[in-house]
Design a binder for these strands. Structure first.
Length: 173
DNA sequence: GTTGAGCGTT
C-alpha cells in the first residue's frame, strides 16, 4: 500500500501511457537534435517537436518526443525523467495532449443523411477523406485545448493604447 | 546565457 494521493481528476498529474512524451524544464538552447540523440537510446522515434514561441522564435523550454512503441516511451519516461540535460534537470511525462490543435474541418461531419429522397445522389463520400486524415482521432483531447486557449494572449495588450508610447522616447541628439 | 512546475505551429 502506498500513502500516495492519487488525484484522478487531474489529467496532468496522471497522464495515460502514450507514445508521446512531454519533456519540460529544458534549457533554451536544447535543440530537437539534442533530444533526438538522448531519447533514441530507448527506441526508434517517430518525431521530436520543440515548442517555440511564435513571437520570439525561441524555445519555450519544453518539447514533445514521439516514440513508435509505447514500451520504449515507457522506458524513456522512467529513465530520462530527472536526467540532466544541458545543465537542467528535465521532467518527462506522458503527454496529455497529442498534437498541436487540430483544425476543425469546418464542415458538417455528421452521418451522410440516409435521406433516400433524391434521385441524384451527389457525393456523400467526400466526408471519408477527413477520416482518412485522422481528424477524428484527437477529439477527446480537445477539451484540454479549449481550456488552455481560453485566455487571449496578454502579449497584445500593448497595442491597446497607442498614446502610451509617447511617454518613452527621451529623444536625445 | 532571464532563473520553470510549463502540454503544442508552421
Amino acid at each position: 500500500f502506498k500513502g500516495e494521493t492519487y488525484n484522478h481528476s487531474d489529467a496532468r498529474a496522471n497522464p495515460d501511457p502514450n507514445t508521446c512524451l512531454g519533456v519540460f524544464g529544458l534549457s533554451l538552447y536544447t535543440t530537437e537534435r539534442d533530444l533526438r540523440e538522448v531519447f533514441s537510446r530507448y527506441g526508434p522515434l517517430a518525431g521530436v517537436n520543440v515548442v517555440y514561441d511564435q513571437r520570439t522564435g525561441r524555445s519555450r523550454g519544453f518539447a514533445f518526443v514521439y516514440f513508435e512503441r509505447i514500451d520504449d516511451a515507457k522506458e524513456a519516461m522512467e529513465r530520462a525523467n530527472g536526467m540532466e540535460l544541458d545543465g537542467r534537470r528535465i521532467r518527462v511525462d506522458y503527454s496529455i495532449t497529442k498534437r498541436p490543435h487540430t483544425p476543425t474541418p469546418g464542415i458538417y461531419m455528421g452521418r451522410p443523411t440516409h435521406s433516400s429522397g433524391g434521385s441524384s445522389s451527389s457525393g456523400g463520400r467526400r466526408r471519408d477523406s477527413y477520416y482518412e486524415r485522422g481528424y477524428d482521432r484527437y477529439d477527446r483531447y480537445d477539451e484540454y485545448d479549449y481550456r488552455y486557449r481560453r485566455s487571449p494572449s496578454p502579449y497584445y495588450s500593448r497595442y491597446r493604447s497607442r498614446s502610451r508610447s509617447r511617454s518613452y522616447s527621451p529623444r536625445r541628439y
